[in-house]
């Protein structure tokens, strides 16, 4: 099975080729949470996450709300 390397939240991550944003969220156990996903500076909305396939060297950020004033 071929793989690709992406950067997730600043760290290298290896994924199966053809993985979607939704696959990544499942892999990270983030699929049950409300998160925002940014791929290469572009926001990927929930409806598009299953169809948005990740490419080699993609910069991915998964963001949540934490405490703040």
């Amino acid at each position: 099975m071929s793989t690709i390397h992406i950067t997730l939240n600043g760290q290298k991550r290896e994924l199966p080729s053809g993985s979607s944003v939704a696959d990544l969220l499942k892999l990270e156990s983030a699929d049950s949470l409300k998160v925002a996903v940014v791929v290469n500076e572009q926001i990927v909305r929930p409806d598009d996450r299953a169809s948005h396939l990740l490419q080699k060297s993609d910069q991915v950020e998964i963001l949540v709300f934490a405490g703040g004033g």
Binding site: A30, L63, F65, A66
Partner: peptide, 10 residues
Amino acid sequence: VTVALRRFNR
């Protein structure tokens, strides 16, 4: 209430 954006950490 205010909240802040943070990177997700599993």
